[in-house]
Amino acid sequence: MTRHAVVALTVAAAVGGLTAPTALANSALAAPAAVPAAVPTDPVVTGATVNGGKDVVVGTTERKTFTVTVHGSDDSGLQFADVDLLGPAVGFYTTDNYCETATACTTTFTVDPHPDPYNENTDLRNANAGHWYVNTLVDTNDGASLLAKNVGGFLLKRAAALTVNAAPEPVVRGGTITVTGKLTRANWDTYRYAGYTGRSVALQFRPKAGDTYTTVKTLTTNGTGNLRTTVKAASDGYWRWSFAGTTTTAPKNATGDFVDVR
């Protein structure tokens, strides 16, 4: 029994001596586990800035040029942007450009109050004034695309003009000052300025030594856009009309008219 035990142990040792190196060799020859390839992320559009965040105001003669910057990101970077502007009465403008950075794409638009005889879709009419929206199709450096709607907005407004005249000049202290004026706005259908009727306009005063205007009273423009009121002369200073604007028409302050009170 002792001999059989020794033989058994010897065989086991021999088998073990052959098996361990073989397992190690097989382990060394095995291929490493594959690392999954990175999956490209979808592009993202986070918003759009129009005209530096200011309203776009257009008169009757001069073109207005402004920028639209689309903001976004992608793991490969933004490459190209097609930008559409949509507004009231089927208003539509479009342009495109390569992106200046991996996260910003800026395009330039020009609005002309006079119609383009070669492209009726660019005609600017009174009905186009108001809220406009930005749609964009962006391309990335790795070939992906994204259509994003209503990523920004702005107000396209008709320019306003406002006059003032305060008289007499000079005036006796305690006397009556008559202040007149007229509020008009650009008419994109006729290419002229016309009276803006039924609008609230503030009469404001600034003392000669001051730098701030204060509202004295508020009037409504008549059927032709005219304004007229009277005030008592108390001290030297400047009188002006001030229009706060609407969603379709830009605000406007008249240049102050100085009255010398004696």
Rank of each mutant, 00 (worst) to 15 (best):
P113I: 04
T180D: 05
N119C: 01
L162F: 04
V172Q: 15
K157E: 07
T106L: 13
A81G: 07
S145H: 07
W188P: 06
N187I: 13
D123P: 01
N150S: 13
Y193P: 08
G153S: 09
T95G: 05
A127F: 02
D123L: 12
V164K: 04
F109R: 00
P113Y: 00
V70S: 10
V138F: 06
V83G: 01
K149M: 10
N187T: 00
S76P: 05
Y196D: 15
D139P: 08
V134L: 02
T110I: 02
D116V: 01
T190S: 12
F109S: 02
T107Q: 05
T122D: 07
T101R: 12
Y93N: 08
L85G: 08
T94Q: 15
G130C: 11
T122A: 10
A167G: 04
K157T: 06
V70L: 08
D112Q: 03
D75Q: 13
L155W: 02
L162Q: 06
H131V: 10
L183T: 01
W132I: 09
V179I: 14
N97F: 10
A144P: 00
G77C: 06
V111K: 05
N121V: 14
A159I: 01
R192I: 13
G143F: 03
R158F: 10
A129S: 12
D74N: 06
A81F: 02
A127L: 10
T107K: 10
I177C: 07
V151C: 11
T108K: 12
T69E: 15
N150K: 12
G91Y: 03
P115Y: 06
G72S: 04
N128Q: 11
S73T: 14
K182C: 03
A81K: 04
F154T: 09
T178D: 02
D189Q: 08
P168R: 04
L137R: 03
H71R: 10
S73G: 15
D74W: 04
D142P: 11
S145A: 05
Y133F: 14
Y118K: 14
E120K: 07
N135M: 00
F154P: 11
E169D: 15
G198A: 10
T136D: 12
N128L: 00
V68N: 03
D96I: 09
P88L: 05
A186V: 09
D189I: 07
T197M: 06
F80D: 15
T122E: 06
G87W: 09
T140F: 01
F154E: 02
D96Y: 14
T69P: 03
E169S: 12
K157C: 05
D112H: 10
T108S: 12
G181Y: 09
T69C: 07
G174H: 13
K157G: 03
S76G: 10
D96E: 14
F154Y: 13
T95D: 15
S76V: 05
A81L: 05
P115R: 12
F92I: 06
N135G: 07
P170Q: 02
D139F: 12
